[in-house]
Each structure stands twice: as structure tokens, then as C-alpha cells.
Design a protein around this nucleic acid. Structure first.
Lengths: 340, 340
DNA sequence: CTGAAAGCGCTAACAC
DNA sequence: GTGTTAGCGCTTTCAG
């Protein structure tokens, strides 16, 4: 296992150690072409005993192929994205492709930089969150000539393909369920929007559907940063102090909704009769809460799977006629906090 | 911005478009060496209007330098690791280096595969969670000739350098605090251990210190999979049904502790007098809970920062005398669930 | 300040 | 089944 230690091992070293040509060593190491079992064994044992690790940089340059898929997401701290990643990984693990993540922190310029870095490694495909990008990012993606799947959202026009849910429709659907249950004085609590297009679209769908029912959002409040659970608690208390007669609170994500739920339960509020609650996402966390929170599943894992499948198919057969738009349908769950 | 579209752009294209030699174009694009402002402008505008993105594969092969740092962690779904990543990113953003994550799912063989893949890209350094690796992984890391920092844990011997906390000491410290507060009938709830060496070490430290105080763990239970909050709830209820006179519950992580807390509060148990509780990690989530949970900070972000600093220094000056062992000291917070 | 030549370590394509 | 020959697209090095 010891080596020269001043220079990384190359194919040539394995070739010399095994007395087999570089080319054949290369064949063995990649399982390509026919090689006799005898030489294969010799090569393999030489490679192993030297501790040789192939140089993919050189391999990629020579073969003009890189089995990487860039996955560009806003954050890893928002549970949603690790779940999308799981879906992607699960599918790619069955293939030659490997995901590589880049994080944008919800900043368009950072997205642009990350994308540039990623593309400079000539990946086989790109999966990128959202439909909103800078012009430069868009141009790079178009010019890249590789499959691009925009995920999470389908309210817009994709550069190439998109997989996600309609957040506008999701907001609308929740508004309809709320109105149908007879709630009338509705408050909205969410993240600051310029950063989060999907939350904004949900909000638009939500208020639009309420308006159709002749109802307006009675109060609204936005936050940024901090522990979501604590924020949810705090915002809920502030809002109810300001507007004590609200009978429903719609939160832009489940974590703040959970904070609100805990706070209201402590105060002895009758949920869902005195006040109803709903969040968004269907995060696993919810399962341990004292009440099952009403929410809507964002199909996170499924989005990841689908996106990865599209990339994978396209990589294997560039002519493949893969879908350009995959719209998944989020299911509403009423839980214990929204009357039916 | 339009291109041939059948072949990615190369330096030569920019060279031709700008009438400047490839070499000078390369200099401009990398800000290396002196280039007159005039030619610099010409090159830059040509590159931009073509939409040229440099090929790092070729660059890396030629320069024998890759500005990537492999970060190998067990999972992205355990909040802990995204936080470590933040620390790493924060430091690396100030440098030329870029983190690339690989996920092992707590499986040693998968770690080995991921490591192999990673090393085949010839990164500038490796940050890897834990001190337990297969022999082959160890050998690869040693043979790689690049800086390696093992993180999270310092109870063991590093291959090269390590940054973390002593989980054994952490377990011991918590046991001491619990005994000092007068609790005597102590239950332990945790993850299944073969998978999680650090949880195991905490457990060992914990039981060791209890033993020194003449106390044994009165009951214990382990889980794997599922929603941690729900599991915490469920395990707590099971354990108390079995051993109703327990007066303290020590959980191997904050999420299951939070589940236990919610469950006990609902039952009207007097916390921390009838039963005390403690978790581990100091996750942000805790801030919104009805009571502040006793826990111990695992210094996650700081671990990431330190590890990244070591790598960065070593990359810039290979002779640098960076620390081989950085032990951070977790702080205990008593919150409202552990008497002082 | 700019250019020309020679590879980096591997693989495609073709011979044998 | 195995070996030989050219590069992949850049950067290093050395000349001007």
C-alpha cells in the first residue's frame, strides 16, 4: 500500500507493476472490452497492492464525459432540500451518475456564481431549484447543451424541463378548504417574500382564492431568520394580540405553524374550532406534535426522483423524448387543526 | 451568447474572436501575470459575448491543482451536518477552495466508495466525519498525500488531524450534572448504536460516570428510523409504562428528547421535579419548545470552521504547522428540565 | 507584456 | 484479447 509518496500513482505505475500495457490496465479498471481473466487478475491485484486510485480528471478530459449531475439548491438547512436530495440520490445510485450539490443561500448572484463553477466541470446535467434565475444564469444553462431540470415549481416557463407542484394552485386549494370549513377571519404568517418565490406564489394563490370567496386576509406578518419554531410562536402571539378575533392562521411553512400550534395549545385555545391552523410541506417532524397539523405535501422526494429520472434518461439516450413539464399534485391533509 | 451548439466553447474560440493568443486569454481569465488593460478588455468582452465557461477539467489536469475539498458526512437529514457544513462553507468562501459533499448513510462500505470517488477527483483536502473507517478507507486517506481532518470526535487517534469534542467526556459530564442534582433512577433512550459511534461513546461515558456515583442505568431503549419526535414520544411512554418510578431520562439527541418532553407535559408530569430530562446537541429547534430542554452544545459550526481553517492553511503552506488535535468543549445548558 | 512548444494522465480508434 | 498512436483543453515554462 506504500507508494513513492512524492507523486500520485498513475496508470503507468500499474502497467509497469503488472507488466500489462496501460491501455489494457485502463480497460480492466473500467470493465470495458474483453480482457482475459488472467490478465484482469494480474492488473487488479497490482492496482490494489499499489493503492492506485484512478485520476478522473484525466479520464474525463480524454473521454469528454463527466458522470456528475449538478444539483443547485437554496439551502441545506431547510429540511425540504435534503429530502429532495434523497430522491435524487436514490435514483442516481442505480446509474453511473453522481449528484454534486451547490448551495445558493437564496441569492440570485450566488446562484450565478455557483452555476458557473459547476458548469466549468462540464457535468452531464443540471437540476436546479426554482424557475427564477438571472439572465446570465439562464444564458449559461441554455448554452451548456446539457439537460436542465428546474424543480419545485411549475408556475412559469422552464429553460428545458421542469418538475414540481404549482404553488399558486396549492395556495388556492388551501384557501378553498378553509373557506369551505367556514372560517372567515384569516391571518397569514410567512417568510419575507422577495427571497422565496414559491412562498410568494402560494400567497398569491391563497389571497386570490379568498377574494373569489369575498374574503380578504385580515392580517399578515412576515419574518426572516431565527429559529422557525420560536418565530412561529412569537408571530402568532403578536398577531392574536393585534387581531384577537381571527379564526384561522395560515403559515407559509410547517415549522412556524408548529410553533403557533404549541403556543395556542398552551393558552388553551380550542383548535380547530376557536382557531384553525394550517402549514405547508408535510415535514416528518409534524408526526410527533400534540395535534396533527393541517398541511399540504410538497412531494419533495418525488420531485427529486422524477428530476433525476429525466436527467438519467436524457444522458443515456440524448434523443429520448422525456417530458418537459411534470406537475405533481400536492395532497392536503386536514389533520386535527382544520375542520372538514 | 449563441454558440456553435454542437461543441462547447474553448479557449481557442475566445482567442480567435479576440485576436489574442490562447495563452494570453488564459492569463486574463485567471488574473495571472501582467496583461495590458487594452487586451484584457478585448479578451473579457469576447469571452462574455461568446458565453465562454472555462473547462476546469482541462485546467486541473494541466495545472495539477484542484481547488476542491471533499467533505464526507453520514447524512444530510440529521440537522447536525448541515450546520457543520455552514461552518466549513463560511471559512472556505474566503479562499479559493470549494467544498464538495459526499454522504455515507452511516455505512462504512459506502463511505469507502464515496471516498474512492472523491479522491479520484484529486481534491486538495478531505474533511471526514468520525474516526472509525474501514482499513481500505484509512489506507486511501494516508496514501492520498493531502491534508485530512477527521471531525466531530476526538476520542481516538486521527489519521492526520482531528477536530471535535470528546463524546465520552460529554456523556460523563451530563451524568455528573444529573447525579449532582439528586436524580437516582435514570433511563437512557437512544439510537441503535452500531451505526453511531459518537452516541455510543456518549453512552459509555455516561454509564461510566454513573457507575462511579454508584448508580446504574435503570432502563434503556434504542430505536432506528422514523420521525425522531414521534419516536421520542413513543419510547418515553413505553419506558415509563415499564419503569414508572424513573426520575430522569437521558436522550441521545434533542429531537427524541423534545418528543419525550411534549409527551410528559401533556400528561401533566412535573418537570424537572418529578422527572428530569436532557438531550444532546443544542439544535436550534429547541428554542420554540414549551420548556427549554437541558442539552449540551456539540460545537457543530465551530468544528466546521476549525477543520476548514486547517485544510486551508495546509493547502496554502504545506509546511504549516497546524494542530493535529483540536478538542472543543461542549457547554451544558440546564434549561428548564434539569435541576441545578 | 506576449507567444510557442510541450505535456498533464487518461481513453478513442484503430491496428495487430 | 492486446498494443499503439493521437489527442482531450488547458497551463507550465521558457523565449522573445
Amino acid at each position: 500500500m506504500a507508494s513513492d509518496d512524492t507523486r500520485p500513482l498513475t496508470l503507468r505505475d500499474v502497467s509497469e507493476a503488472s507488466g500489462v500495457s496501460e491501455m489494457t490496465v485502463s480497460r480492466v479498471l473500467r470493465n470495458r472490452g474483453d480482457v482475459s481473466t488472467a490478465t484482469r487478475e494480474r492488473v487488479l491485484s497490482a492496482a490494489k497492492s499499489l493503492g492506485y486510485v484512478p485520476n478522473k480528471i484525466a479520464g474525463a478530459l480524454a473521454s469528454q464525459r463527466v458522470n456528475l449531475v449538478s444539483v443547485i439548491i437554496p439551502s441545506l438547512r431547510n429540511m425540504v432540500f435534503p429530502e429532495v436530495m434523497s430522491g435524487i440520490s436514490a435514483v442516481l445510485e442505480e446509474t453511473e451518475l453522481q449528484p454534486v450539490v451547490g448551495v445558493t443561500d437564496y441569492l440570485p448572484e450566488k446562484e450565478e456564481r455557483v452555476l458557473y463553477e459547476m458548469l466549468s466541470w462540464r457535468p452531464s446535467g443540471v437540476i436546479i431549484a426554482g424557475l427564477e434565475h438571472t439572465d446570465a444564469s439562464r444564458a449559461m444553462l441554455k448554452a451548456s447543451g446539457i439537460p436542465v431540470v428546474e424543480i419545485m415549481d411549475v408556475d412559469g416557463t422552464p429553460i428545458d424541463a421542469m418538475v414540481g407542484i404549482s404553488h399558486r394552485r396549492a395556495g388556492r386549494k388551501m384557501a378553498e378548504a378553509i373557506l369551505k370549513a367556514g372560517y372567515q377571519r384569516i391571518g397569514f404568517l410567512g417568510t419575507k417574500m422577495p427571497l422565496d418565490h414559491r412562498a410568494r406564489k402560494r400567497f398569491e394563490g391563497f389571497t386570490g382564492a379568498l377574494a373569489k370567496g369575498g374574503v380578504e386576509v385580515a392580517d399578515q406578518q412576515f419574518y426572516s431568520g431565527g429559529s422557525a419554531l420560536a418565530k412561529g410562536r412569537e408571530m402568532t402571539e403578536t398577531m392574536l394580540a393585534r387581531e384577537p378575533d381571527l379564526d384561522f392562521l395560515y403559515y407559509s411553512n410547517d415549522m412556524i405553524a408548529a410553533g403557533g400550534l404549541l403556543s395556542l395549545l398552551e393558552k388553551g385555545v380550542d383548535i380547530p374550532n376557536q382557531i384553525g391552523l394550517a402549514g405547508f410541506n408535510g415535514v416528518e417532524l409534524l408526526e410527533g406534535l400534540p395535534r396533527q397539523l393541517a398541511t399540504m405535501d410538497a412531494c419533495r422526494t418525488e420531485i427529486g426522483r422524477k428530476a433525476a429520472e429525466i436527467i438519467s434518461e436524457r444522458v443515456n439516450s440524448p434523443e429520448a423524448d422525456t417530458p418537459k413539464v411534470v406537475e405533481l399534485t400536492p395532497k392536503i391533509s386536514y389533520g386535527d387543526t382544520l375542520r372538514r
